[in-house]
Structure formats: C-alpha cells, structure tokens
Simulated scan of single mutants.
Amino acid sequence: MTSPYTRGDSFSSEASRKHIGQALADYGATDVLFSHRGGQSAVAFKAGGRQFRIVMPLLQSEGTMAVRGDAADSRLREANAKVLERANRKSWHALALAIDGKLGAAAAGIATLESEFLAHVVLPGNHTVLDELEPIIDSAYRSGLRPTFRDPALPYGLSNIVL
C-alpha cells in the first residue's frame, strides 16, 4: 500500500514549488524562477556558473464543456477539475523528489551538479541540451548509425582530429 507521502496527495503544488525553491537555494542556486505557459510549467535557476531549465508538462482539461446549467454537468466539471489538480499536484511532488535526489547526489560528491542536470543546461540560443540532442539521438536509433558530434566552430571534418 502506498502512503499519501509517496503519492504526493498531501502536498499542494505550491508547497512543492516552495520546497524546490528552498532546496535549490540551500544548494547555492540563484535566480530561481517558476513559470507557466500553456500546458507546461518550468523551473529555471543558475548554479555552478550555468543556467538550467526544467520543463514539466501539466495535465489540462481537453476543452470547455457546453454549459447547460444542470447539476450533472456541474458535478462532472468539479470531478474533472479535482482529477487534474491531483495529477498536477503529484507531478510537482515528483519533481521536488527528483530535484532533492539530484542535489543530494551532487552534495555527496557522487555526481556533479552539471551531470545530474545535464539535459536541462541552457545553451546559448536559449535551448537546453535535451532540446539539441533529442533529435540527434532519435535519428541515431532510427538509422542504427552512431551520431557524430562536431564543434560547429571548427570547419567540417576537423572535429574528429585527436590532438
């Protein structure tokens, strides 16, 4: 049986965001920012000379229902809103636990902050490492060929030279 703690049922989304902000600040992160756009929320911060951004999709209603004004429609909307709120509360709680684990590993010297959050490092141009690598990895799996990573500052072909 799963306890409410592990399900995240007893934590509000706001409590999880506060926990994330405090955990990042305790680790030494600065400029912690939470944002929301469309069906996604994000937490961004600076630490170790890098910028990081973690984007998390949130569940949303699939549209507004026609309002007929009867009690059944009202109860259905309320039930749907509660399901969405609970799912998003659990997502924020899971993110808080994940960030705690990553920060704990970095603090213990098991990993570095950058290795733990590598996918979320923001590169020049405002894309994350994950944004840049995901299509390359997908293509490599579809083709069965090893991807090549080259330094865009070097002329084509010079990145494979080992000095």
Results as ranks from 00 to 15, higher is better:
Val162Glu: 11
Thr148Gly: 06
Ile161Lys: 07
Ile161Trp: 11
Tyr27Trp: 10
Asp100Arg: 03
Tyr27Thr: 03
Pro152Gly: 10
Tyr156Asp: 12
Ser3Arg: 10
Gly49Cys: 06
Arg17Tyr: 11
Tyr27Cys: 02
Pro135Ile: 04
Arg142Val: 09
Ala79Pro: 00
Pro135Leu: 10
Ala119Asp: 10
Ser41Trp: 06
Leu145Glu: 04
Thr64Met: 05
Val83Arg: 15
Glu14Tyr: 07
Thr112Trp: 06
Glu134Met: 03
Thr64Gln: 13
Gly38Glu: 01
Phe149Ser: 05
Pro135Phe: 05
Arg53Met: 06
His36Gly: 09
Phe11Pro: 00
Val162Arg: 12
Glu114Thr: 14
Arg150Asn: 08
Leu154Met: 15
Ile161Ser: 07
Leu163Met: 04
Gly21Ser: 14
Pro147Glu: 02
Trp92Asp: 13
Arg17His: 08
Ile136Asp: 01
Leu76Trp: 07
Arg68Asp: 12
Gly38Val: 00
His19Leu: 09
Gly101His: 13
Glu14Phe: 03
Ser35Glu: 15
Ile99His: 11
Leu163Phe: 11
Lys18Asn: 14
Gly63Ala: 01
Gly104Cys: 07
His127Arg: 14
Thr112Asn: 06
Pro147Tyr: 01
Asp138Gln: 09
Leu113Cys: 13
Ala106Arg: 11
Ile54Gln: 08
Ala111Val: 05
Ala81Ser: 11
Thr148Phe: 06
Ile54Glu: 09
Val32Gln: 05
Ser115Leu: 10
Asn88Cys: 09
Ala44Glu: 15
Asn88His: 04
Glu114Asp: 14
Arg150Cys: 08
Pro155Asp: 12
Leu33Thr: 15
Glu62Lys: 09
Thr64Cys: 01
Lys102Phe: 13
Thr112Glu: 08
Ile54Pro: 00
Phe117Trp: 05
Ala15Leu: 06
Ser74Lys: 15
Leu76Met: 15
Arg75Ala: 15
Ala140Val: 01
Tyr27Pro: 01
Ala23Trp: 00
Ile110Lys: 14
